[in-house]
Amino acid sequence: MTPLLSDVTVNGEAISAAAIADEAQNHPAPKAKPGLAWVAAARALAIRALLLQEAARRGLTPDPQAVAEGQVETADEALIRQLLDEALDPVAPSDADLRAAYEAAPDRWRAPTLYEAAHILLPVRPGDAEGLAAVQAQATALLAQITKDPRAFEALARSNSACPSGQSGGRLGQLISGDTVPEFEAAMDALTEGEIAATPVATRYGLHILRLDARAIGDVLPYESVAPRIQEMLEKAAWANAARDFVTQLSEQATVTGVKLNAA
């Protein structure tokens, strides 16, 4: 097993353990397995080194471009972009490819689902274990009252919810897919109309006592209206595959120590 504090070399170029440790902060991993973040960081820096070495071999000169208002690429970022622009030639998807992607998963191309829901928000800061325990106890007590008398939902929302919707009995009005955080939307999808979630729904904002009042699943959109989106999706996938193959080719020709790139 690779030691967590070992250096990495790419064609003789050293990448220090300190640099890998700094990069590891950008690679989340389970608390019980911090080594996964280290390995991911080591791979990322090794691939970066491979690409910059190839850019130098090709004699590329950095030409940084603006990537956002007030933000310009670094010289290394520019070199990697220029290298990939020069080296990659992904195959453009054909009309047949677009049609096949549409017909393979038509449900993916539906109009947004419409929801009407109500909730009681009990806020808690991420990582606040003591606060979470208190809020869980409060949520359990509120759910017990609502289970006994569902009509109490609105009054309890007014007196307990930290969301402005509490003043409207917890009603959120009409929502569409993407209006809420994914975990909240997933909870709405799991309920039947009129159902109250049996357990509090946890999101980054805290715990929610959730009631789904109505749901209207969007119709499958006609192919012509979604073809541009499908084309963009397939073009991005083709570019990503070409980039992966290019990095694989470089790594197979390189001498790398301290980390394996075959799982990158």
Rank of each mutant, 00 (worst) to 15 (best):
R58V: 03
A42Y: 05
W38S: 03
A49M: 13
E54P: 00
V72Y: 01
I47M: 03
L79T: 09
A41F: 01
A55V: 08
R81M: 07
E69G: 13
A66Q: 13
A41E: 08
L52A: 10
I80E: 04
A78V: 05
G70Q: 01
L36S: 09
G70P: 00
G35Y: 07
Q71F: 08
L60E: 03
A44V: 06
V39P: 00
A56H: 11
A44Y: 07
A78H: 02
R43I: 05
L51I: 13
P62D: 09
E54W: 06
V67A: 07
D63V: 15
K33T: 14
T74P: 03
E69A: 12
V39E: 09
A41C: 09
Q65Y: 00
R58Q: 15
A32I: 14
A78I: 09
R43W: 06
P64M: 06
E54D: 15
Q71S: 07
K33M: 15
A46G: 05
E77D: 13
V39K: 01
L36F: 12
R58C: 06
L52C: 08
T74Q: 03
V72T: 15
G35K: 02
E54I: 10
R81S: 11
G59P: 04
I47G: 01
A46W: 02
A66T: 06
L50R: 04
I80D: 00
A37P: 04
P64F: 02
E77P: 03
V39H: 01
E54C: 03
A56I: 10
A41T: 11
A44C: 06
G59D: 07
L52P: 07
P62G: 10
A44G: 05
L36I: 13
T74W: 08
P64K: 10
L60I: 10
D76G: 09
R57L: 13
A42I: 12
A37S: 12
A75D: 15
Q65P: 00
A42L: 10
E54Y: 03
V67F: 02
A49C: 15
I47E: 12
T74G: 13
A56V: 12
A56N: 09
R58H: 12
